[in-house]
Structures are given as C-alpha cells and as structure tokens.
Design a protein around this nucleic acid. Structure first.
Length: 495
RNA sequence: GGUCGUGUGGCCGAGUGGCUAGGCAGAGCUCUGCAAAAGCUUCUACAGCGGUUCGAAUCCGUUCACGACCUCCA
C-alpha cells in the first residue's frame, strides 16, 4: 500500500526509486539566480518547483540540506570571452558599484521569495565568497591533466577528458565532434586548444572591475565552476539531487559534471532534475527575448498585458497545477481559473475546521476518505505529480463541502476523520506551500469593526429595511470588502 | 542540420493498455428579500493515417503541426 518516491532522473532518462546516499539526510542543490537584474517569473516557477520538492522531502521525514547559490561574480555573456559582464554593464547603467547591484537584486530576489512563500535554503552561498575554492578546483583540474593555462586564463580540456573514458555531453545528449563542428566557424578561439573547451578562469581585461588575484594573474572565475565547487563543498563529492531549469542542462550542468569528475573522479550527482520553461503567448519567457513579466508586475497588475492583479498564491497554485517537467503557458484565463480554484481549496480548508463526527460510521464513505488520503502521497511519490495532487485535493474539498452542507456532520470513524483532515491540510499548506492570504489581511481591529457593521446590517435585514442593508453592502464593496450571506450568518472577505 | 519534447472535450491540464482525472466556462438546481458568494448535479475528449492486441489516449510505424535546446538565461 505504501508507495516509494520515484524521481525522473534527467541523466538516466527514466524514473528511478529515490535512494539517498546517506539517509535520512538528503542533499539538494539548485542553481540560483544571477543577481544582475530583477528575477522574472520563469525563475520563480523553477524556485517554486524546488521549494515544493524540498517541502515534500521534509514531509517524508528526510533531513534535507538545501543549497541554492547566488551568482554574483559577473560572468561574461558567453564562453568565448565576447559580450559583456552583465553585472558590470548593469552597474554602468544604474551608476552603482557592481557589488551594489549585487546587493540590490539579491534583496529583491529575497523579497520575491517571501512573497511566494518559498522556504529559505539552508545554505545560500555566493560565488564571490568561494573564489579561493574555485581557484583550488581549477588548480586540481590542471594537476589532473584536464585543464590548461593559456594567456592568463584557464580552460577545461574536453578532449583530454573524453580520452580518459569520460563522456562530455552525456547529460544533454550532445556529441563532442558535432559540437566542435558547430563552433568551427567562430572567431576568437586562439587561447583555446579546442573550440569546445570552456573557461574555468578568465583573465580580467584592464577595465574589468570584478577581479581577484590568482596563480594566473588577476581575473575572475568561469560561470560553471562556482556550482561544482559550492555543491560539493556543502553536500559532499557525491550528493543526491541537483536541480535547475532545462536551459541550464547545456552547457552549464554538462560542464559541472565534467569539472567534478575531472577534479574528484566521482560522479557528483545521483539524481538530476530539470524544470521546464514558462511560456508566455506560446513563447519561452526569457530575459534575452524581453517578453518577461516581473513577479511584482503580476502581483500589482501593473503590466499592459494583464487585466488585473493576481495574488502570489494564485500564481503559486497555477504553477503547481502543471507538472514541473511540462512547459507551462501563462494566460489570463489560466490565472483567473487558478484564482477560483484557490478560493475553493481555502474555503474547504476553513469548512474542515467546523466539521464534527456524526457518531455513526458509513463504511463506504470511511473507505473513500481513506483512499483519497492515501492518494495524496501516492501521486506525489510519482515524481512529484503536483497536478494530480491538486486534483485529489479538489476531490477532498468536494467531500468536505458535502459534509459542510449536511449539518457539518461526517459519518466516519474518528481516526479516519483525523487522518483525512491532517493530510488535506498537510498537503495543501506544508507540501504545496499555500497560505491563506485573506487571513493575513484581516486584523483584530478590522474583525471587531466588521462584526459591528454586520450586526447592524443584520438588524436592518430583520426589520426588512432593505435600503439600509443594501447601502452597507454596496459601500463595503467600494472598500473592497465583500459580504457573504450564508445560511448561518454573514461573513466578509477582503479582496 | 543535430538533440529532445509536445499535440487530450469550449479553454486549461493529468493520465501506469481495459475502469469517471481535476479545474474553469456552459447548463440545471439549492440557499436567498434581492444580489453576490458558496455548494450540489451535469457535459466524456484524446492531431491524421496505418499496425500490434481480445482491447490503445496510452505500444510501434508514418504524416502533419507546434515548441525547446544546440549562444547568456530558471
């Protein structure tokens, strides 16, 4: 009856039973943002997905060390040393020091994380805080014969790596020769032995501000190196789960594997997980395409393509309603649907608290509730199928509503009821990370005022004084407070 | 060109070869002074064409369409 967690491993290209290296401990590493600009919604989708993974692993009882880095070292826009350092170019744009840019957008990123109710990682290391370790790994790769220095820069030697029976490209299904063929017509490869080689350390040009001393002169680390270093420093040479967006599979994660194997000789990651892209109008939402919506724009509704503001929890539910490995096209209709669905689930959660046992047990109902409770774990064990979990929660909500309408009586046994209630709440709040936003907006003061107003209106209604009753209702509606007349009285909700 | 993926009812979105996913919208109903909100019921689809099978949305082949990656991005 009890299922076990299975994870789709991008490296193996199949679902595998999750078998941690060192249970009950689990190491989870997720590639974090480059803090040179506001995070956009696509990043948020990935981080919500892994937040859910982290939450579910904890729910299963694992002790999870969750590492998510901050890339603040200012890498170049491509591996060939062309392009611009994104942090430095942003700093020129905003007339701020590079580290002010880093600070500003790191804080902004954390604000967004809080907004969407993301748990903080247990370690959030920065690339600039691990320059020494990165230099050490580059040295080790040189010593092991997998890297070479060239004109103050250090490059990973892909051919040397492959000739030692390693396979650069195994994660993303690339073929080294074809990659080289694709690069052949590109210029500016003089420093490298091979076009496919990638930078571990780059020599800083004179105008480059973010620079550190190294055995090869002043420079800065290559982008892929920080994740190799920080993941294994905190999680060990082989750890459990490494996650990130699909777009990082190549070259970033491919290079990470090569660096770790080259440095330590061991496979760094047991399970690779990749989240799919967030689309907008059928196209990938991406910084480079310039079609991204910022999280804050969505929350405030301040964007030409939005009809209104959507709450963070609406967005969170919308994202989790599709599987993490599927593409998700964000639309206004989808947001509206999710908004209603969220209300349905939260209403049910509220009704759940008011339910009590009827005293008699209907064995069919009892069984059905237990089956629904079982199903939550079963579907999550199947590669974190949140879409199915949410469908199951809707079914549970439907049951709750029926009981609520039936004098709030549940014809089931006490253990079944307790289990059903605990599981519904645990999966909705702990695992999916949904919070009731309306609860946060209502305060004691407001509650007292509203109770008074509702009481006055109740008297008016009892006297069939409809003008007064409707005036109160309309005026409150202007103030974005919605009155709901139910069978057993009136409640309110802040919009 | 290479690699990978997708095509499900009005819309979104899960689907392990046979058994109702679920949500939104629509329709009907309950509640109600009216309304709103909420709730209940209902609506049965799998791109085309072949094939395997007792049986296919699910496996195989093929055609068409779409997308992602191959260059910085989650």
């Amino acid at each position: 009856m009890s299922s076990v967690l299975q994870i789709y491993n991008s490296l193996a290209r199949q679902k595998e039973i999750f078998d941690p290296v060192n249970p009950p401990y689990v190491g989870l590493y997720v590639c974090g943002p480059t803090v040179y600009n506001d995070v956009h919604l696509g990043n948020v989708r990935t981080f919500i997905s892994f937040d859910m993974v982290y939450r579910y692993l904890k729910y299963l009882g694992y002790k999870v060390r969750y590492v998510r880095n901050i890339t603040d070292a200012g890498h170049l826009t491509n591996e060939r040393g062309e392009g611009v350092n994104r942090i430095e170019s942003q700093s020129q744009l905003e007339k701020l020091e590079p580290m002010e840019i880093v600070q500003k957008y790191t804080v902004g990123f954390h604000d967004v994380c809080r907004l969407f109710n993301l748990h903080r990682p247990t370690i959030e290391p920065t690339a600039t805080g691990h320059i020494i370790e990165q230099i050490e790994m580059a040295k080790q790769l040189i010593n092991n014969g997998y890297a070479y220095e060239s004109n103050g820069s250090v490059y990973f030697d892909v051919n040397a790596y492959n000739s030692h029976n390693h396979n650069y490209g195994k994660l993303s299904g690339r073929n080294t020769e074809e990659l080289i063929a694709g690069y052949r017509d590109l210029d500016g490869q003089d420093e490298k032995r091979n076009a496919i080689d990638f930078a571990l350390w780059k020599k800083a040009s004179p105008e480059h501000i973010m620079r550190w001393p190294s055995p090869w002169g002043e420079g800065f680390p290559g982008w892929h190196l920080e994740c190799s270093v920080m993941s294994t420093k905190y999680l060990g040479t082989t750890f459990d789960i490494h996650g990130g967006g699909m777009d990082l599979k190549f070259p970033h994660h491919e290079c990470e594997i090569a660096q770790n194997i080259g440095a330590t000789g061991t496979e760094p990651v047991k399970y690779w997980m990749h989240t799919n892209m967030l689309n907008f109008n059928g196209q990938k939402m991406s910084k480079s395409l310039g079609n991204s919506i910022l999280p804050l724009e969505l929350i405030t509704g301040n964007h030409p393509l939005l009809d209104k503001a959507y709450s963070p929890m609406t967005v969170r539910l919308l994202f989790l309603q599709s599987h993490y490995s599927s593409e998700l096209d964000i639309t206004l209709k989808g947001l509206q649907d999710a908004e209603k669905g969220l209300r349905r689930l939260l209403n049910a959660a509220q009704y759940l608290d008011g339910l009590c046992l009827s005293g008699e047990t209907n064995t069919t109902t009892d069984d059905e509730l237990n089956q629904l409770a079982d199903k939550c774990k079963e579907v999550m064990d199947d590669d974190f199928n949140t879409a199915k979990l949410i469908a199951t929660l809707y079914e549970m909500a439907s049951r709750i509503n029926i009981f609520h309408n039936d004098n709030k009586k549940c014809p089931v046994s006490e253990p079944t009821f307790t289990r059903f209630r605990d599981i519904f709440k645990a999966f909705l709040f702990e695992v999916l990370g949904i919070v009731n936003e309306n609860e946060a907006t209502s305060t004691d003061t407001l509650d007292k005022v509203m109770n008074l107003v509702i009481d006055i209106r109740k008297t008016a209604r009892e006297n069939k004084d409809w003008p007064t009753s409707d005036k109160i209702r309309d005026a409150l509606k202007d103030a974005k407070i919605i009155l709901k007349d139910n069978k057993d009285g009136t409640s309110y909700e802040v919009e």
